[in-house]
Amino acid sequence: MKPKINATSFGSITVRRKNFDYDILIRLDGQIEKRRKKLSKEIYGTSHKISLAEAEYIYEEGTRKIIIGTGQIGFVKLSKKARKFFKEKNIKTKLLPTPEAIKLWNKSKGKTIAMFHITC
């Protein structure tokens, strides 16, 4: 079941009334994981550019859409390789500042996954 996101502020996100102080990934089955941002940081020196390795980790068979919360003011971007990977998998990607991405997530239907960056 898709978890409802209650709120976000710089450095935190609240899902099902539980506060997380790190970036999260929400899987198709509703499970919440800590984002593996080191997969991008190792390549680009920052977690603000999603690498192919991180995109491959985020991906789940059956996903139709991914919502990416790009941070409180929107610093996170997809690398060209990550964008190409999602396009080849026929996954619609929506990148929005985290507060806007949360609104979209809470309204979304279907086979959707999400990743939320909670700072910047």
Rank of each mutant, 00 (worst) to 15 (best):
Y59V: 01
P97M: 10
E42P: 00
L96V: 10
K107Y: 04
Y57V: 03
K41A: 06
W105Y: 10
K18M: 03
P3M: 10
E54K: 01
T14M: 12
V76T: 03
K94S: 14
K2M: 13
K41H: 14
K4M: 06
N90G: 00
F20W: 10
F75I: 09
V76P: 00
G110S: 01
P97H: 08
T63P: 03
T8K: 05
I118C: 07
A114P: 11
E88S: 05
M115Q: 14
Y22F: 15
K77T: 13
D21I: 09
L25W: 14
E54N: 02
I50T: 12
A114T: 07
K49G: 04
T14W: 10
L96M: 12
V15G: 03
F75L: 14
R35V: 02
K65V: 02
R16M: 12
I73S: 07
K81Y: 11
K77Y: 06
R27K: 12
A114N: 09
E88I: 12
P99W: 13
K37G: 09
K41F: 07
H117F: 07
L39F: 08
M1Q: 11
R17A: 10
I5A: 01
K38D: 15
P3C: 08
K109E: 08
P97Q: 11
Y22E: 13
Y22W: 09
G110V: 00
R36T: 08
I58V: 11
N106L: 07
E60W: 00
G71Q: 10
K2F: 14
E56A: 11
F75Q: 13
G30N: 06
I50L: 09
S40I: 07
N106Y: 11
G62C: 02
I58Y: 08
I43H: 06
I91R: 03
P3V: 11
F75A: 14
L39P: 04
H117R: 04
D29E: 01
E88M: 07
H48P: 11
I13H: 05
F85T: 13
L104N: 01
G11D: 07
M115Y: 11
L96C: 06
I118E: 05
K109I: 00
K94R: 14
P99N: 10
R36L: 15
L28Y: 00
K84L: 10
Y44M: 03
T63C: 04
F116S: 04
K87V: 00
I24H: 05
E60L: 01
